[in-house]
C-alpha cells in the first residue's frame, strides 16, 4: 500500500484525535448494537441466575443485608463495566488486524490520544449498558437503599472500573497487536471478578478464596458498591484509592503499549 498517497498533516490535536476515535467506536456500536451483547448479556444472565438460585444465602447469620438482588446487582454492574472495558481491547485488536490502527498511528501526532479515545468510547458504551441493566435488575427486585450521592458513588465507581479495564485491555492490544490477545485481555478481568466475594460477603468467605479476595482490589469495588447501594459507606476510601492507583498503573501499562506499538 502506498502510504504516501495519504495527505498527512499535523493539525490534529490530542482532543481531536481522541474525539475522532471515540466517535468512530460509538458509531460502530450504532451500526452493530450486537457489540454490546457480551458486556450486557453475560452480567445480566449471571445476575438472574445467581439472584434466583442463591437468595436463601441471606439466611446465613453473617450475611447482613437481606436484599440479595441488590447484592448481586452490584456484581453485575461492575462486571458490565469491566467487560465493556475488555471489549475496548477487542476493538483495538481488530483495528490492528485491519491495518486501521497502523494508519492511525502514523497520522496521529499524539498517540496516547488514541487510548484516550477508546477510554471515552468504552465509557459511553458502559453508560448504555448500565441504562439497560438497571431497570432489568429493578424488575427482578433490586432496590436502592442509599441516597442520591451514594448512587452517584456506585455508578462512579463502576465507571472508574470501566476505565481501568479499558486501559488494561488496550494496553494488551497495543503490546500484542493481534486478536490472539483477546483471552489475555478478558481472562484476567474475569478471574479477578470471580476471585472476589461474588456469592457471599467477604467476611463469609473461607479458605484460600478469602485470602485471595482480601488482597483482590476488585473486592474493594464490590464491597464499596454494595455499601453505597445499601446506604452504608463501606470501604469507600479504599475503593476509590485502589481505583486511582489502578488507573495510574493501567494507564502506564497502556502508554508502554503505545510506545511498543510505535516501535513496531
Amino acid at each position: 500500500m502506498n502510504a504516501a498517497a495519504v495527505p498527512v498533516t499535523s493539525h490534529a490535536t490530542v482532543w481531536s484525535i481522541a474525539r475522532y476515535v471515540a466517535w468512530r467506536n460509538l458509531k460502530l456500536l450504532m451500526r452493530s448494537p450486537a457489540l454490546l451483547v457480551p458486556a450486557l448479556l453475560l452480567p445480566l444472565f449471571f445476575f438472574i441466575a445467581f439472584n434466583g438460585a442463591l437468595s436463601s444465602l441471606t439466611n446465613l447469620p453473617g450475611f447482613g443485608s437481606k436484599d440479595y438482588s441488590a447484592f448481586q446487582f452490584v456484581f453485575a454492574l461492575m462486571q458490565s463495566a469491566g467487560f465493556t472495558g475488555a471489549m475496548g481491547g477487542f476493538a483495538m485488536s481488530e483495528d490492528f488486524e485491519s491495518g486501521f490502527m497502523d494508519r492511525l498511528m502514523t497520522t496521529a501526532s499524539a498517540r496516547a490520544a488514541i487510548i484516550l479515545g477508546y477510554v471515552i468510547a468504552m465509557l459511553g458504551r458502559f453508560v448504555i449498558a448500565a441504562i439497560v441493566l438497571t431497570p432489568v435488575a429493578y424488575a427482578f427486585g433490586m432496590r436502592f437503599h442509599g441516597n442520591a450521592l451514594q448512587i452517584v458513588g456506585l455508578y462512579g465507581l463502576a465507571a472508574v472500573l470501566n476505565v481501568i479495564a479499558t486501559l488494561w485491555a488496550t494496553g494488551v492490544a497495543m503490546h500484542v497487536r493481534s486478536f490472539a490477545a483477546a483471552p489475555g485481555m478478558f481472562l484476567p478481568i474475569f478471574l479477578l471478578f470471580f476471585l472476589a466475594p461474588v456469592f457471599l460477603p467477604l467476611n463469609e468467605l473461607t479458605g484460600w478464596l478469602h485470602s485471595v479476595a482480601v488482597v483482590n482490589p476488585f473486592t474493594r469495588f464490590l464491597e464499596a458498591g454494595r455499601g453505597f447501594l445499601s446506604g452504608e459507606n463501606t470501604d469507600v476510601l479504599w475503593a476509590f484509592g485502589a481505583g486511582a492507583g489502578l488507573v495510574v498503573l493501567t494507564g502506564l501499562w497502556a502508554l508502554k503499549g503505545v510506545r511498543s506499538a510505535s516501535r513496531g
Binding site: L54, L57, L60, F194, L200, E204, T206, G207, L209
Partner: peptide, 14 residues
C-alpha cells in the same frame, strides 16, 4: 473451583 470456593459456607444454610 470458583463456585465451590465462593459457596463454601453455603453448607451452613439450614
Amino acid at each position: 473451583v470458583l463456585v465451590s470456593a465462593g459457596l463454601e459456607k453455603a453448607t451452613h444454610v439450614k
